[in-house]
Amino acid sequence: MEIFNNHKKLFTTATVLFLLLTVVIAIVPAFDNQMNNGPLPDAQPLSENARKGRDLYISNGCVACHSQQVRNVHMDKVWGNRPSIAADYALSTRVDTWRNTATLMGTERTGPDLTDVGNRQPSLDWHLLHLYNPRLVVKESIMPAYPWLFAYKEVLEEGDIAVNVPMAMRRNKRVVATQEALYLVAYLQELKQAPLPEATTTPSFLYKPEEKSGATESKADDGLLDGQVLYAANCQSCHQASGEGLAGAFPPLKNSKIVLSKDLKLYVDIIMNGYDSRPEYSAMPAVGHNMGWTEKEVTAIINYERNSWGNKAPKVSEEEVKEVMEYLKTQMK
């Protein structure tokens, strides 16, 4: 065939084929998605500080380990209340003349997904401590430390936000968050899944595991949820696996009066709606509310906390907790 012996025809044919496929598979769908997707009505554009934090997130390559996409599969349910949809990324446009759009979806999940981290972990103190050195709060973490986002000062000045770093690590100086650290945390705090409009049906999570008869993984033998697993996933990064918390940042649950108290009202209230009445500690987010917990989860966690690390208090039943939760709901209104 002549095409085999004529370099102009051969290479032109190959190029045309490749270009054609490129247009069909990449350029047309890209245009289509760009033009036919707008942001959700309730989506909040990033604040000015958060936008600067996002630049830091990009330039430090956080996307190498953290994804920002909740896939529509059941195993991703822990990262958000609904699967991510095209509209979630519609606000993302070109960063500037030099840099391309950054949807920051990511392809690796060496660390947790951050789509909804603003709801999961809103605490500024936790984030600052974690950024200064992640192993201060999560000792198993392999995330890099970012001490260059902090400054060392002899004396605190007005408006300085000090980070509660152990003395040995700060050489008798105070560790102060720089503007950059605050920007970055602002960005993380604003990473939240926007609610879908009332009328739309939420896309479902696929590959839901079949309900096994009898015990499943997250449930103990008696059919109750495993409090230890829930604690590890939701509480441990602040209160620690030892239940001792971190002095000056997160209070201990070991020997805690609230945990061991007979009256469950305050205890359940803190788990569901957060707590911020002790100046020496950081504010606690409304973990239960954010995670959409029912009395099942709350009971499991309470019973785990009341009977761990040397704590000894009678177990509570789901009925008791349910009653308290209903009462709290009426109080809120």
Binding site: T22, I25, A26, I27, P29, A30, F31, N33, Q34, N37, A86, Y89, A90, L91, S92, T93, R94, N100, T101, A102, T103, M105
Partner: peptide, 17 residues
């Protein structure tokens, strides 16, 4: 590297390609 179709998910589709 051309920017005109890379807003939002356009970026992701181009990235995969």
């Amino acid at each position: 590297y051309l920017p005109s179709y890379q807003d939002g998910l356009g970026e992701t589709i181009i990235q995969g390609y």
